[in-house]
């Protein structure tokens, strides 16, 4: 019986391919201005920035990007990650520095609301080249999976997480990752410069 159902399903697809409508469950898989096969911008999740506007990662296309997952109430590694991103920025030639985007996406989907992220921006004095993003649990989980970042919320509300800083080229492809907290800032800055060209 099962292969019979299979035949019918295949038949359905053949008929659908000839102009019929796809079932309601299966939203059309359109490819607008196709991202490259290795572009993380294929993620179609919508985030919200700290000014409350909807934001998809694909909007970063065309610019070199430094992206990090973090949470605002982190008292250990995250402040250092932000400081490191600022240090990388300081090493960039002006032409690249002006085009680069520095992205922070929060694990803490409950507490790091857009308003909380706006406060974090003010505290850390992050200018317009920084993008602070809030997303739902599924979106953040998927982005973390793409970047190879593991994370877990502990009972006290803090997050254990990998410390991985990622450089994306203008197509949104991962060109460099800095794993851990020590060293490697020059290599990350160099990767960003290369990516910008």
């Amino acid at each position: 019986m099962k292969p019979h159902l299979l035949t019918l399903a295949l038949l359905l697809s053949a008929i659908a391919a000839r102009g019929g409508d796809a079932p309601a469950c299966c939203h059309a898989e359109q490819a607008p201005a196709a991202f490259t096969k290795n572009s993380i911008y294929q993620l179609d999740a919508t985030f919200t920035d700290d000014s409350g506007h909807a934001f998809t990662l694909g909007e970063l296309r065309g610019r070199p990007v430094v992206i990090n997952l973090f949470f605002a109430s982190c008292g250990y590694a995250c402040p250092l990650l932000v400081t490191n991103m600022q240090a990388i920025r300081g090493q960039l030639p002006p032409a690249v520095r002006d085009r680069a985007v520095f992205v922070l996406v929060s694990f803490d989907v409950a507490r790091d609301t857009p308003a909380a992220l706006a406060r974090y921006r003010a505290q850390r004095q992050l200018d317009g080249q920084w993008k602070l993003l809030h997303g739902d649990d599924a979106a953040v989980r998927e982005l973390a999976a793409l970047l190879g970042v593991k994370y877990k919320q502990e009972a006290d509300g803090a997050f254990s997480h990998s410390n991985i800083l990622t450089i994306l080229n203008p197509e949104g492809e991962i060109v460099h990752q800095r794993i851990g907290l020590q060293g490697g800032l020059e290599a990350a800055a160099a990767a960003l410069v290369t990516a910008a060209h």
Binding site: C74, Y76, A145, Y151, F159, S160, N163, G180
Partner: peptide, 26 residues
């Protein structure tokens, strides 16, 4: 991807705090 071990047995008893923020407690 919330499983916070590195997959390397020698590293799993005391996770590298450099690689995993806070994970040393897990």
């Amino acid at each position: 991807n919330s499983a916070m071990v590195t997959g390397e047995s020698r590293a799993d008893s005391g996770l590298d705090r450099n690689l995993f923020c806070g994970a040393g407690a897990v």
